[in-house]
Every structure is written in C-alpha cells, then in structure tokens.
Design a protein around this nucleic acid. Sequence first.
DNA 1: GAGAGTTCTGGTCGACAAGACCATAACTTG
DNA 2: CAAGTTATGGTCTTGTCGACCAGAACTCTC
Lengths: 254, 254
Amino acid sequence: MKTTTPDPGVPADYDPAQFPAFAVTVDVVILTMSDSRLQVLLVRRGVAPFEGMWAIPGGFKRPDETLDEAAQRELAEETGVDGASLLTQFGAYGDPERDPRMNVVTVAYLAVLREVGGVVAGTDAAEAALVPVSDALGGKIELAFDHARIVRDAVERVRVDLALSGIATAFVGTTFTLAELRAVYEAVWGVHLDGANFRRSILAEDGWVIPTGRRARPGSTGGKPAELYRPGRMWKHGGPIRHPQPSEKRKDQE
Amino acid sequence: MKTTTPDPGVPADYDPAQFPAFAVTVDVVILTMSDSRLQVLLVRRGVAPFEGMWAIPGGFKRPDETLDEAAQRELAEETGVDGASLLTQFGAYGDPERDPRMNVVTVAYLAVLREVGGVVAGTDAAEAALVPVSDALGGKIELAFDHARIVRDAVERVRVDLALSGIATAFVGTTFTLAELRAVYEAVWGVHLDGANFRRSILAEDGWVIPTGRRARPGSTGGKPAELYRPGRMWKHGGPIRHPQPSEKRKDQE
DNA sequence: GAGAGTTCTGGTCGACAAGACCATAACTTG
DNA sequence: CAAGTTATGGTCTTGTCGACCAGAACTCTC
C-alpha cells in the first residue's frame, strides 16, 4: 500500500515561480420568481469580446479575498443586495477556449432572490434585464462565453436543491402565503401540486412555517385571503416537499 | 428593469493585460471501499510547504487542457486508472491564505474507485496510502493546506450522490453480489439496511442489476453463495435506495 | 456424513406518506 | 345579494418502506 517510486516524467511539484498563470473570475447566476416564472438576471456586455451580447454578471477575483467574498461583492455591485447566505457555489469552468483573450477559470455561484426588479437600477453594467430562463436556455437569447451552460447547470442545481434544502424560502419574501410558496415549487419543477396536500405537508410538523396571524390581500380575482407565514427553522435541515417523479417508476419509458 | 448608469467606482471589465494572476490546481479526492470502510487515498508531500504531511493528490492545471482533463490526468498519474466517467467536480477553493507560497485556486474532483491498492504503486508521489476517512476527518491524521475541508466536502457529496446517482456501482466491481452493494450504502451512510428489503428495492424494477447466472464464492464464514449481478442502465437516472433519515421527522431533536 | 452455523432469498404484516377528490368557509366583484 | 374565486379542511385509496419471520442453500467442524 506504500511506495517510494518517483515518476521522473512528471515532477510532484513545479517550481512555484514558473506555474502557468490564469485569470480567475467569479460569475453569479441570479435567479428570481417573476410573473410566476423562473427568471435570470442578465447584463449586456459593453466591451469586447462578445460586446453587446447578454451575459451573467461577474468579475475578477482579487488576490486578497476568498471566492465567497468575491461572489458576494459581485452580487452587491450588481443588485445592491447583501446576500452572504444566499450564495451557493456550484461549479468551476476552465475550458481553454472559453475566453478568447486569455486563460480564464471562472467559479460560478448561484443566488436566489425574492425581487430583483427594484435594485437592478444600481448596477454597473451597461444594461441589465430579467429574462425567463426558458428564453435564455431555449436559444431565444444567445449568451456570451459558455454562460448558457453555466445557467443551465445553475437551474439544474436549483431543481435538486429545492427538494434537499430550504432554498424555496429564498424566492419569497419575509412573509408569504402558502400559495406563493407552492408557486415556487411548481415553477421550478414544472409540475402541478395540489394545494390542500401541499398545505398538509408543510403544516404536518412544526418548524417549516410560522403563522404571523395576519392575512394577505387577495389578488385582483378575489377569493379568500390567505394566511401569512414566515419561514421556520426547519428549512436548514432540508425541504418538506418531495420532487414528484412523473411515473418514472411505473413505465419503462426510456 | 433596464439601466444605462455606469458605476465609475468599478469598471465593468478590467484591461485584460492587468488582471491578477493566479495559479490554478486540480485536486482529486479518491475514495474506495476497503475493509468495509470508506477510505481515501493520500500522498505524503515531498516538498515544502507542508513537507512530510499527508495531502490529497493534485497538480497544476495546464493552459491547454480543460479542468476535467486535468483531473483525469492527475487521476491517471496517481493511480494509473483511466477514469474519465468517474470524476465529479464538487468544489473550488480559493482562500487567500490557503497556500503560503502564492495565490492558488484549486478545483476539487471526486473519484470513486473499486480497488486502489494494486495501482498505488505506480504513483509519482513520494509515498501513498489508503486511509479510512474517519481517521482523516477525525483529526487522527492532519492534512496539508485546507485538504481536510476538501475531503470533508467530498464525503458529504458522496453521501448525497448515493441517493441521487448511480455512484454506488462505482465502488464495486464489474460483477457483484447484492450484499456487496448493500455494504457500500451501509458504510457511506453509516446505517444498517435489511438485506431482504434491500434486495426487494433493487429487484423491484428492471434495469438496476442484471443477473449473470453465476454465483460468488462464499466468504470464509460459509453461507449460501450469493448470485452475481452486473450494473444495469437505470443507475444513470438516480438511485434505487433512499437515504433513511434517523427519525429526523419524528423527534424534534436539534 | 451429520449437525451446526451462516448467508441468501422470499413472504407477510402493519405503519405511514402521498395523491386524488370533495366539501365548505371566506372573501371579492358586479 | 348572487356568482365566482381562493383558501382550508376532510376522506379515501394507493403505494412504499421497514421490521420481522421462515425456509433454502451452502460451508465448516467434528
């Protein structure tokens, strides 16, 4: 189980002075719910390469900050949101040809926000917009670099995390109705969930949602005002709703 | 929703010529089952810093290769295994002080192997050994850099992936008994699974395991020889066994 | 070769979770 | 007030999962 045979072909460590140099950037995929759909924040590039194309916000990592701090800084610059706990690192991308200028390795972060519209105005980008992810991934909008792949990976991550973590509450406000929360699951997973069953699953045990006693204003269509809740502590330990599998077990559909 | 207000404090893009330079490395956490325990492959560092300490294998990314290729190359150099499909990227680490020599950002990969013992001899490291993860994480063995954290993240990833992907089959050989497969789940999750129920879950639908018709040689303790199976196609679509939650739902234990 | 021990393999049973569906309450708008 | 809409609670069926039992198959020891 042990060996002392050195391989002369590849030294175990290079001379620290002659390592290959890379630029390291941090890109942030900012997702939010708007118009009952999952949307991503994009900025229009003001400089070459890919000038004029849409891209996800990001920038160079500084030598004196951690990756998390860099992502936090980018998020703050772009949206004004101080979202330390919202950021999740989900991938690194370093294909040699991903940036035509130089060797760039980027670390991608995911941020889920409740509402982005109001804060986009404070950005440093030439132009910023909220775009439905279906448009960004369906080819309707072409993204710079390999950002289409990064966004795709981010959305996939959200889908998985929705069942495994409390990321669902990040989409809604500090107080919310159960219908709003259910809409998050339905939009991200693209499924329909029974309102009564959803309610039961959430209220079955304490700690998921805490009633505030107040009631929401009904929408323009009327209806009974729903109770307002705020998130409980249990969201830190996973999610209460399981991802319905569309008959993957019954049918042998490949 | 749109804006053209530039932020003079932070330019949208730096001059490409004056970006901060980083070294980019790729580290590989190689996990395997041995002695019914989860083990990690470590190498002893032959050069400063942390000379003489244990670390996970890794090396500098080259400008002309992708991150995946770099990880593949490191895995091959270290174990001789050509495991393109075995590698999973699970994190990037870039704290300023993680390497005392310079600014290093490392991208961490996870590799699950069936058997490492025989191939360790071909490594380029000064010394290599298989260590139980409980020792590496429990403080019995101190790791160089922030490798303890990286290993911890890797193990956590395996635990999650075991329920979500077909990573379980990577631990066993091309043919295996159901008891061997069950041992993987039990070792990684630290739980006990009923043999009969496990068998039922696996055989409930086609595609998980395919009987080979042959039988395994019983162990030294005797017993009925178990049937030998090989992995089916369904492992690509998730895992058949759900992670048992140790009464997380019943008791309100914080 | 007989018996003991071990493992594999299939069966049963009960508890529980999840989804479909219905009924009613509460509120809006016209 | 009537009609429409949403929220909320109830019931029922179904399927899944885990605990436990029993027999089969094989090895080892004596």
